[in-house]
Design a protein around this nucleic acid. Structure first.
Lengths: 343, 343
DNA sequence: TTTTAGCACTCAGAAGAATCGAGTGCTAAC
DNA sequence: GTTAGCACTCGATTCTTCTGAGTGCTAAAA
């Protein structure tokens, strides 16, 4: 569709615009090494490219900037794989050596690291924990009727909750209940716990535990898992260094957007394998119409379970960022596996 | 030191400036109801007040704005107690009804609430948990030699950690160890655990548990509590609505400051009883030289254990904010007590 | 002695005018 | 098909003018 020369010009414009954030003119281009033809020729080609929708002109007497379609073409067809500098590789490995003892920390750490590396905003969407299974359940008394319930999953995540014991239930009965649960429900996915009790175990429980009526509500509370993924974000303030965010209102609307994290969670949700690039309005959110989001899922046991994402201006170094996100996701999967001691 | 009339004028200027954020002129003042003298008289008084350092003039042909000293005098001598509107009282109570099951949630919730109410930035510094005592300790095996250690305090906080078991230690030995700890260390403040083992229990442990040498490091890890207080902040983006933060660089330097939360923690640290007001440079931080910080501690068992703080422009409604912070801190103490079921 | 009216003066910020220059489109020659 | 040349466009920058809120000072009134 595009001639080689047009591709070269489009590529050069984007390449220039990514660092300068200024419209690129024909003269600037003609001075580049790998462009051998005159400014006039370039102007003709640029006019054509604009007509086809790959370029835009802020006003008549300005240079051209890439349009969303232009970026799309760039990402899909022109991208050259980014080469890490030796320095970057070393730094990357060094930084990744740090040990962590909880999955949450891995996410948080990765998010901060990534934003430092890219100078953009990053997200890490924790894995949906509903998949994990019950390993151990326990109720620890505190004072009077206050207790802490602890629920450990097979992945070593600990869910705690502070509760009030139902009236008239002795610690003896509670002990029985806890035993019963550990015995019958161990190894069951958290999300099925409630159903399992209601459908299969209720009758048995009633015989086994006195005053089941009083315990029932307590159980509901304890086993209610909000399996909602946790979202870690980092580096929002770095965005303010970008010329496109010299405007307080823009910054604010972006920060407000982040605060309603559900929007972002939805955006990060679809867990296809491989790196996804959504440019500008492809995200369907007005506030970030001149931002791009690059996401990729990380795997656990070969399954994509969560997402790593970067939000930056449409004018970003796609090659580098894509490489970085990919690297992180892979390294990330490894770290998770390590943490859970699975080969 | 200041005549009644000077006080009235100073008060009026601040009162006006708090809402307008614009320098206040003599004519504007003379039109106010409770000011009965002419603009010329006011000008004379203002000149005097400026000479004494209570007012400043951005430039010769502008009105006056309060200086830091002016605010100080206002807060110390002129403040009128803020009267809640009926609406506010109702809203406040409604919002505070929500139930929470973990101390962390209380902090987070309060922080968000307070920032919504004030439209400024809020901090809640969680209590130093080193005071809390061991209630229950447990080690739960996951896979191979990976375990999760769980440590429940008397206040119902749960500290978890993922660890690798030392080689050559059977689950039997581990069980003994856990029993030993629960038996001997229950009720001991977390911060003393390590010392207690080293000084008093080590000898006994060596007899009791085989291969103590291998276990020792493991214990160190498990009982290492970073008793660092957690800082919750909220509402940074609200600051961007203020005219004094129409400048991206200012916003950024503020956000950067928050990111280095140690600085803030230090600022919130001193836990005197009662509401503290630090105006502008009294905080000794350049980035917030035209912000004020209002803090107060909340109590637990009658002791100040943590801090609630608000950061807003020096030009803030001190009366209202002070009242609000005070209210929150008190209600907060109550909630904590409630949570821990202490009368 | 204190207060006030009157008036000349100041100065930041808004509005307007002039200038600059990067970049374009078009034409005509190569 | 490519390029040099040239008139033209228009945002940004700079300079200028204008405006008006607000002051300080003086002299008269209370």
């Amino acid at each position: 569709m595009l001639t080689k020369r047009q591709q070269l010009i489009l590529w050069s414009i984007i390449d220039d615009y990514i660092v300068s954030a200024e419209p690129v003119g024909s003269r600037t281009l003609s001075k580049k090494e790998d462009i051998q033809f005159s400014a006039a020729t370039i102007r003709n080609e640029m006019a054509d490219l604009e007509e086809m929708g790959f370029l835009e002109q802020p006003h008549t007497s300005a240079g051209r900037i890439p349009s969303q379609k232009g970026y799309r073409f760039y990402v899909d067809h022109l991208l050259k794989p980014y080469m890490w500098t030796q320095q970057e590789v070393i730094l990357l490995h060094e930084l990744h050596q740090q040990k962590v003892d909880r999955a949450e920390k891995v996410f948080e750490h990765a998010s901060i690291l990534l934003s430092r590396f890219t100078n953009y905003m990053t997200f890490v969407l924790g894995p949906k924990m509903s998949e994990s299974k019950l390993r151990h359940f326990q109720v620890i008394p505190l004072l009077d009727r206050t207790v802490v319930s602890i629920l450990v999953t097979d992945q070593g995540d600990v869910h705690q909750q502070r509760l009030t014991m139902p009236e008239g239930i002795s610690s003896d009965v509670m002990g029985k209940l806890v035993n019963f649960i550990n015995h019958h429900l161990s190894g069951m996915p958290l999300q099925n716990l409630k159903k399992a009790i209601e459908n299969e175990l209720k009758d048995e429980l009633i015989l086994y535990v006195e005053r089941y009526d009083r315990v029932s509500h307590f159980l509901d509370q304890v086993l209610f898992m909000n399996a909602q993924e946790k979202l870690f974000t980092s580096g929002a303030n770095r965005m303010m260094d970008l010329p496109e965010f010299r405007d307080v209102d823009k910054v604010k609307s972006l920060l407000d957007l982040i605060e309603e994290s559900d929007v972002l969670v939805k955006l990060l949700e679809p867990r296809e394998i491989g790196v996804q690039v959504k440019i500008g309005y492809e995200n369907h959110i007005d506030e970030i119409r001149d931002c791009s989001i690059i996401t990729t899922s990380y795997l656990f046991n070969g399954e994509p379970v969560g997402t790593i994402g970067i939000l930056g201006p449409t004018r970003m170094d796609y090659g580098k960022i894509i490489g970085l996100v990919d690297f992180f996701a892979k390294d990330f999967s490894k770290q998770l596996m390590n943490l859970y001691e699975i080969e």
